[in-house]
Design a protein around this nucleic acid. Structure first.
Length: 415
DNA sequence: TCTGGGGTCCTAGGACCC
DNA sequence: TCTGGGGTCCTAGGACCC
């Protein structure tokens, strides 16, 4: 719920951003990699750089670079295959450190969090003290660095954290907001992406100071609600709350996608992948006690264009077989004019599935079997048990998304 | 030797109902 | 019989984030 909360005249928000997180974790746990240009990549063939170390960044290796590009730009780069569980575990432990300074911690990705420390200032004398202690704690415990921004709101705190990397600590005081913001390039603001930047650059607008001159009414007409937001952030205004884990909204969709080892040429191949993806989605839905009514299938063709089709059904979907059945129906309406490199299945229109005992015996049987399978898979890892039809698939490795949120953070941080 | 995967939010247009 | 208007739900696609 987005209920309004009484705001003190000035809030103090801290944003912590781990520096080159995946790469730094690898370097911290393997001294042979320290200070070297390294790039963390996915486990599969068609992968990209997930995180580059600072030495690798210095020679132009970026997140999203292909392995080939990375090697070309930095011949000495060392590639390390991603270790999702290591990053998740480290992330969880870091988030627990934040809880020592305020209960209001919003985990926004595996390596970033907002802390509302307004109410804890009297305990720690100043926000800078909190920031320095967090840096010390993380440095001592994990041999990792982070950049911290301190400001009166989230947008400015995030901006501040990004102004000095790695290992920065930047504070924007309420009274300094206008002067501080004026020279900042607009694309430094979180939420202003490449398209918006391109539009403004074409009009000769490069800085927040210049953006401030654009009438709010014009921005609203051009960008809708986003226009009003643009006008506000140009002046550094942002009332968004820091939302702690126990108030976090339920997810709106659950999905998985994967780039195939080689492009699929037949519809039957795609169906096999749909079945596999439906298994993964179904299990995650049940773990969260959700069911959904809308199924979306996404394919990306070899030309890199994509197509998404979705359909809403009149019944709840949470079992793999039902999701697969639905996904296959959706897929049947989709064209395959060329080979396909990526397939995805996503379920939305989610609702909480109360733990009811199904009315009909076969439904009940299905639930019991499914729950037994879930137990085994949750304990021993993905696809310890899976339908025989999937035996044909040879690679089952997964790459972690940096937007992953530590599962069970609620329990973890209360311990 | 090409281009990962997981999400959120917004918009526009159409169907349908009253 | 010459053309309303509000509301809701749905789909497709795009921008953006990490």
């Amino acid at each position: 719920m987005n209920r309004p909360q009484p705001q003190p005249s000035h809030r103090t928000i801290v944003h912590v951003d781990m520096n080159a997180f995946f790469a730094s974790v690898e370097q911290a746990t393997n001294p042979a990699l320290r200070d070297k240009p390294i790039a963390v990549i996915g486990a599969k063939d068609r992968t990209v750089v997930l995180t580059a170390s600072y030495a690798a960044k210095a020679c132009g290796v970026k997140t999203g670079s292909t392995v080939y590009e990375a090697k070309k730009r930095c011949p000495s780069v060392l590639f390390v295959t991603t270790n999702p569980y290591k990053y998740m575990d480290t992330s969880r432990r870091i988030m627990r450190i934040f809880q020592q300074y305020t209960p209001i911690v919003e985990v926004c990705s595996i390596d970033e969090a907002f802390l509302d420390v307004t109410g804890s200032l009297y305990l720690f004398s100043s926000a800078e003290t909190i920031a320095r202690r967090i840096k010390q704690d993380i440095g001592r415990t994990f041999h990792l660095t982070c950049s911290i921004g301190v400001a009166p709101n989230k947008t400015l705190a995030k901006l501040a954290a990004n102004l000095h990397k790695p290992d920065g600590l930047v504070r924007i005081l309420p009274d300094d907001v206008p002067q501080c913001l004026a020279p900042i390039p607009i694309d430094k603001i979180c939420g202003i992406g490449p398209q918006t930047t391109k539009f403004f650059h074409a009009q000769g607008i490069h800085t927040c100071g210049q953006l401030q001159q654009i009438p709010r009414s014009y921005l609203k007409k051009k960008f809708g609600v986003a226009g009003e937001w643009l006008h506000d952030v140009a002046f550094g205004r942002d009332n968004a709350r820091v939302i702690p884990a126990d108030e976090e909204a339920d997810p709106k969709s659950v999905g998985h996608s994967m780039t195939l080892k080689t492009d699929a040429e037949t519809r039957a191949e795609i169906e096999m992948h749909l079945q596999h993806l439906s298994e993964m989605v179904g299990r995650r839905l049940r773990m969260g006690m959700f069911s959904g009514r809308t199924v979306a299938v996404t394919v990306r063709y070899s030309s890199f264009t994509s197509c998404t089709k979705r359909r809403t059904f009149y019944f709840d979907l949470r079992f793999a077989a039902d999701i697969f059945h639905a996904a296959r129906k959706v897929w049947q309406d989709m064209p395959m004019p060329e080979p396909i490199r990526l397939v995805g299945v996503s379920v939305s229109n989610l609702r909480i599935q109360m733990h009811q005992v199904p009315l009909f015996p076969d439904e009940r049987r299905k639930l019991n079997v499914t729950m037994a399978l879930d137990k085994v898979n949750n304990k021993f890892g993905e696809f310890t048990i899976f339908p025989a039809a999937l035996l044909a698939r040879n690679n089952r490795e997964r790459t972690i998304a940096p937007s992953w949120r530590p599962h069970g953070i609620r329990q973890a941080i209360r311990r």
